[in-house]
């Protein structure tokens, strides 16, 4: 019994000391270092207008449905692109609901972008990402959306190609991961083009 009490006392003291070190000193030190060295990233890579309005984060997808914008991947986060409840669909390979949704997305994608039946639709365009906030689409997906956006904005295909190129995040260290087009940044660039004199 006395042994148990000693153990209890040591356990409580050790818990308290460790809380101070790993839940106090450690995160605060990381916080200080992060805010000093990488303030932009540490605060959410925010996109802020000249008047100080936060318009989003470079890393988080937003919903775009207008013709003149590139569209992100479908999202299962909350009611769509909800930054407070990131989530995938979690539907399995034999789910009827998933198969129906994918088929409907394929049809809608073909209709919106005038993609003929003979051309397969890029998988990323009709599947929901793991987070529901995936900021990227594949390059193939962007190129299929290009004619629609060019028409809606009266821009030359060539100019749009250049912008897509510019807003494509390459593989890290040229080998890791897959390249993707950042939809939000691309659309911001398009709007900036329009408002420029």
């Amino acid at each position: 019994m006395k042994l148990l009490l000693t153990e209890l006392k040591t356990s409580i003291l050790a818990t308290l000391v460790l809380v101070i070190v790993v839940c106090g000193i450690y995160p605060l030190a990381v916080w200080a270092g992060a805010q000093l060295a990488f303030p932009d990233q540490a605060n959410g890579s925010l996109i802020v207008d000249a008047d100080g309005t936060v318009r989003g984060s470079r890393l988080l997808a937003q919903s775009f449905t207008a013709e003149k914008y590139f569209h992100p991947r479908p999202s299962a986060a909350g009611s769509g692109y909800d930054g407070a409840s990131s989530s995938g669909s979690n539907l399995g390979p034999t789910s009827r609901k998933l198969a129906d949704t994918v088929a409907a997305e394929v049809a809608a994608y073909r209709r919106r972008n005038g993609v003929p039946e003979t051309v397969p639709v890029p998988a990323d365009a009709v599947t929901r990402s793991a987070s529901g906030l995936d900021p990227h689409i594949s390059i193939a997906n962007a190129l299929l959306q290009l004619p629609r956006v060019a028409r809606a904005r009266n821009l030359a295909d060539q100019d749009l190609r250049g912008l897509i190129e510019l807003h494509t995040d390459r593989r890290s260290l040229t080998v890791l991961g897959e390249p993707g087009v950042n939809v939000l940044m691309l659309n911001r660039a398009l709007d900036a083009l329009e408002s420029a004199p």
Binding site: N90, R110, A123, D124, T127, R128, S129, H136, G180
Partner: peptide, 16 residues
């Protein structure tokens, strides 16, 4: 249903 067969299964995966 028309999804590209060369892309693999991207449901619940991130492009990057």
């Amino acid at each position: 249903a028309g999804v590209s067969a060369t892309d693999g299964n991207l449901e619940g995966k991130e492009v990057r």
